[in-house]
Write a protein that binds this DNA or RNA. Structure first.
Length: 405
DNA sequence: CCTCCACAGGAAGCGCAGGAGT
DNA sequence: ACTCCTGCGCTTCCTGTGGAGG
């Protein structure tokens, strides 16, 4: 980067941010912000509150299982209730400790346990001890503190998928080693199927209580957005229909409130960057495109080499004739693999790669029968060609391949 | 009505890496 | 330092199948 030109550019951007004409407080739209009111979740708050209230009376709360798709307010509700519980416990002098662990970030048994210990005030080295030793220390800390411990495992399916249900099984058994049971577990997941894959013993004891978070409908999303928008934006900067459009788009994607908030925030950011004094429906559409581009980029650029090659083969075929079938894709793919000097995977594997790309929402593969001419999958792209190519180019090997023609 | 294409997609197993137990 | 175990990406081998053309 060279000197003065880019500095002036930055100066301009920075000063525009400082005197934002759009946002009052952008963080109110951030996914991490926990609002003081959670509309349409009164029932879930009351249920969870009733369960955890046992801890205030000196009993062990039941374990609970919380399900709901992404963006249905699970994490926000749990954090909200825990915070209130913590306040109340302090107020009436009852020892309650809360450990909140996000299992997507802390995705091994060791890391989860060390976070739990950390919340009890026990520091452990980030590596070096055996898992069994961590459990021993946990038991000792609990005996010493005599506190109720509530462990919240958010996105619990991540650890379990990777490491099986040992973690849960052993955590649940800790109560047996204590003079009185004092560990409660709250599991949160957005994968409804994964519950069935649990050990039946774990399943039954974790599922003592179950709380379901249904998706929000468009009307509810609209109300949520209006409330947040009034905190985040300056008065009257939102055009008519902006909130309605965000709500409608997110409602179509299984009522995901996070998505709705993202749209609104990015639309505001785009409006601001353009120096506009208002946020328009047009800005929302741009925001939708940008979010989609980011998603595709994120997914495609981290794909393994063979998946990228298969994807490039699909793009080439669609460029040439508007559609692609498995056989064609495979032969173009093997040719590409040859050109970059790697051995091709088998066709069987290639069909699995196609299915994976389908599940990631990059393309869409439909099984069709062409009668005499066999049965195959016809593949179309389900995200923009431009974004895909752009993301593929970040890979040196694939990039060279694209440059060549 | 039957055939037979061009695949889909299940089952089993292999080599490897990385992590746990000893 | 060593075995043992597990999950992952992949191959090999396989059976199943919707419907155009005979």
């Amino acid at each position: 980067m060279d000197g003065s030109g880019s500095f002036d550019l930055l100066e301009e951007v920075f000063s525009r941010v400082r005197e934002s004409s759009i946002f009052r407080d952008r963080d109110k739209l951030s996914p991490d912000y926990v609002p003081s009111r959670l509309p349409f979740r009164e029932e879930q708050i009351a249920r969870l509150g009733a369960i955890l209230a046992q801890a205030l009376k000196g009993y062990k709360p039941n374990n609970a299982f919380i399900y709901g798709l992404t963006g249905t307010g699970k994490t926000a509700v749990v954090r909200y209730v825990l915070e209130r519980l913590r306040e109340k416990a302090q107020e009436i002098q009852v020892p309650v400790t809360v450990a909140y662990v996000n299992c997507r970030q802390r995705d091994t048994e060791y890391r989860v346990l060390s976070d739990v210990l950390d919340s009890l005030g026990v520091r452990v080295p980030f590596t070096g001890l055996s898992i069994a030793e961590l459990y021993r220390r946990l038991v000792r800390a609990l005996e010493r503190g005599r506190a109720r411990l509530i462990v919240v495992l958010d996105e619990i399916d991540y650890v379990l998928r990777k490491h099986g249900d040992d973690l849960l099984y052993r955590l649940l058994r800790i109560n047996g080693e204590l003079p009185e049971p004092s560990v409660s577990i709250i599991g949160i997941t957005n994968d409804l199927n994964f519950v069935d894959s649990l050990d039946p013993r774990v399943k039954s004891s974790l599922g003592e209580e179950e709380i379901v978070f249904p998706p929000y409908n468009a009307r509810q999303l609209q109300a949520i957005l209006e409330e947040r928008a009034s905190l985040a934006f300056k008065n009257g900067v939102l055009d008519e229909g902006v909130i309605g459009l965000c709500a409608a788009i997110a409602a179509r994607e299984h009522g995901d409130a996070r998505k709705a908030l993202d749209l609104l925030r990015v639309a505001g950011e785009i409006a601001e960057r353009e120096g506009s004094s208002r946020v328009t429906v047009e800005h929302v559409n741009k925001a939708r495109n940008q979010l989609e581009r980011d998603r595709v980029f994120e997914v495609v650029s981290t794909l393994p080499l063979h998946a990228k090659l298969v994807l490039l083969a699909v793009v080439k075929l669609i460029d040439a004739k508007g559609k692609a079938t498995t056989g064609e894709i495979y032969s173009v793919y093997t040719e590409l693999a040859g050109r970059v000097g790697v051995e091709a995977v088998t066709q069987r594997r290639a069909t699995d790669i196609l299915s994976e790309l389908d599940m990631l929402g990059i393309l869409s593969a439909r099984v069709v029968s062409r009668g005499r001419y066999g049965k195959t999958k016809t593949v179309t792209l389900s995200s923009s060609r431009g974004s895909i190519i752009e993301a593929l180019k970040t890979d040196d090997i694939i990039g060279r391949l694209i440059e060549e023609d």
